[in-house]
Design a protein around this nucleic acid. Structure first.
Lengths: 196, 196
DNA sequence: GGAGGCGAGTAGACAGTGTCTACGAATGTC
DNA sequence: GACATTCGTAGACACTGTCTACTCGCCTCC
């Protein structure tokens, strides 16, 4: 049988699995090595530090998110609909994979991590996604003098929504009668104008 | 001389100082004890676990934030102006004390921490602040059928802005020509209507 | 075909962490 | 003056991330 990916990939696989089930706190270096069936010193051959391994796992998260974006984005649809779909994907990913989302936006990881390993800085992964966002905002709001600023504000709204919802701050203050979809719709309407 | 607060408070003081200068990663239990001039076992008398101490530090952060809100809020001003002032305080605090802000919204800490120590759950600290927000939104937008939802979306926008700005994601994608004030204004306008 | 080199992974040491327990030293009370 | 209670110390324990030495298997080259 095959199914023999390199240890480098297997470590990231195990980490992704682990962060989604147990959260980022369970991502110990030794724990990952244990679950991958290797000794605690083995990861060091591929990741010079624990930090680098975590960055690689987070990068996989950005990859997953980008894949979901690509799957949900229908280039033939109207910009407004495409933006709504992307927004749902973004917030949905955060809620569904909250551990991964938490890891992806950890401050220590973003600060230049991965630059030394030649994979590009982690936060650069957000750049093309933001580019698409800006483009769609521009297409939908032709009169907007600064679509980049609108796109940034929209992103921030969705990001905050995802964050605050994922750990129950918003459900707590709003009560159970308000769903996440309603909030996403509110944010979209606020920045893009009412849907119809 | 006095200046002899209980060790309990001194530990929190040291933690606040530490998280603001070195970030949440520097908040080791032993490190805090060291800087407070006591042995590593001393904190245990007041905080049953490292987690509880971190929660107490985060709670102090919510207190600071509430104090800044109170100082900046002019009850005689128009609701729209009050909301703008509060928004600037929120985002300003996150940028100025990013380590503390990061700690305050750490997922593990919010999940029921402090309930056992009888100080109320940490996330309950956000409730009165959100109440004020809702009230002001309702006062400014009389026709809004659900000011709570609008307030929640506004909060999320500010929170996301604070988060993404604090670790340079937004400055990265926007370039240096767009300031944080512009973004805050955009979010306020989007949810509350243009300023004038 | 045996020798040398090299990559991959093991295993142990080290400093450091959070938690737990036993112990000492004050302090206030009967 | 003896007692008890509170507060803090000190050491042990399991565990962590990092570093270093070592082994094993494979490939290459003379």
């Amino acid at each position: 049988m095959e199914s023999d990916p390199s240890l480098q990939e297997r470590l990231v696989d195990v980490g992704v699995e682990l962060v989604k089930t147990e959260g980022p706190g369970a991502l110990g270096l030794r724990e990952i090595a244990r679950r991958a069936g290797v000794s605690h010193g083995a990861p060091r051959r591929y990741f010079p530090t624990h930090h680098a391994l975590l960055s690689a796992i987070a990068r996989r998260g950005f990859g997953e998110l980008a894949a979901r974006f690509a799957a949900a984005d229908d280039a033939a649809a109207a910009p407004r609909e495409r933006l709504a779909a992307l927004a749902r994907v973004y917030v949905g990913y955060a809620v569904e994979c909250r551990g991964m989302f938490e890891l992806m936006f950890r401050h220590e990881l973003l600060a230049g991590a991965g630059a030394a390993s030649g994979q590009g800085r982690l936060r650069d992964a957000t750049l093309p996604l933001f580019g698409l966002l800006t483009e769609l905002v521009g297409a939908h709001r032709a009169a907007d003098p600064a679509p980049r600023v609108t796109a940034a504000a929209l992103w921030a709204g969705l990001h905050g929504l995802a964050q605050l919802w994922a750990w129950d701050s918003l459900p707590l203050v709003l009560g159970p009668e308000t769903g996440l979809d309603t909030l996403v719709g509110t944010v979209l309407d606020a920045h893009l104008g009412s849907a119809r």
